[in-house]
């Protein structure tokens, strides 16, 4: 499987690694020679230093065999045209364009180009968190590698009335603190959980959603398939 990423600067480093770990051969097209130099030094990807909205460049980067094209430059018109060329000229089955201007996301949809906007993705994440009324606080720690969530157990929580050791939390998640009235406890398996308890959960981003669901019973954190 081949994936093409157009633009995005050095911030696509982790995206490239992620795609590579899922079995994609990744090629990057970027106009900035400095970005290209750095990416090719640190990643086992093919790097083409050119305009990714040019049909010749796309072909050279392997668009004909690509399964996926992501256009994430800072210019919405470039992203749109790159995706349209990829799908219409080279038959790429899946494309997505970044809409830097969130309003343009709507226009891209009208034109049949799947799009996403950072403002919307982040906004919907915040909304999902906020829509769970029991969550009072979410903060990233360890440079975004860890999420600390504070929440209050409701009456209908599936874990209320259970011992901590009876609760099936996903891997890499932890109830770090339990606050009950004036009492603050670092809980162990033998501690029970009750409605009204305030918990501080520590999770990794991957299992943040499952951990919250396990504790609240509600569905959250399902969106954002970017």
């Amino acid at each position: 499987m081949k994936a093409l990423i157009i633009g995005g600067g050095t911030s696509i480093y982790f995206l490239c690694r992620n795609l590579a770990s899922r079995g994609f051969r990744v090629a990057v097209i970027d106009r900035d020679p400095e970005v290209c130099g750095r990416l090719s030094r640190f990643l086992p990807v093919e790097v083409v230093c050119a305009d990714g909205s040019d049909a010749g460049v796309l072909e050279e980067a392997g668009a004909r065999k690509a399964e996926l094209v992501l256009a994430v430059t800072g210019n919405d018109a470039d992203n749109l045209v790159a995706c349209q060329l990829a799908s219409m000229e080279f038959g790429v089955p899946r494309t997505a364009a970044l809409a830097n201007d969130p309003e343009n996301a709507e226009a891209f949809q009208d034109l049949g180009v799947p799009s996403f906007s950072i403002a919307e993705v982040v906004g919907s994440l915040i909304e999902q968190r906020a829509s769970l009324r029991e969550i009072t606080n979410v903060l990233p720690a360890g440079g975004g590698k860890v999420i600390v969530t504070e929440l209050v157990l409701q009456e209908n929580s599936p874990v209320a009335g259970k011992l901590l050791k009876e609760v099936a939390l996903p891997e890499n998640s932890l109830v770090a603190i339990l606050i009950r009235g004036e009492e603050t406890i670092v809980p162990r398996g033998g501690n029970d959980l009750r409605a009204g308890d305030r918990l501080v959960l520590v999770t990794l981003p991957d299992n943040h959603g499952p951990a919250i669901r396990a504790v609240t019973g509600e569905r959250s954190g399902t969106g954002g398939g970017v």
């Binding site: 210019n75 018109a77 749109l80 226009a107």
Partner: peptide, 10 residues
């Protein structure tokens, strides 16, 4: 070109 194509399509 890209701005022109986008403005025209939109």
């Amino acid at each position: 070109d890209n701005v022109n194509l986008m403005a025209a399509q939109v």
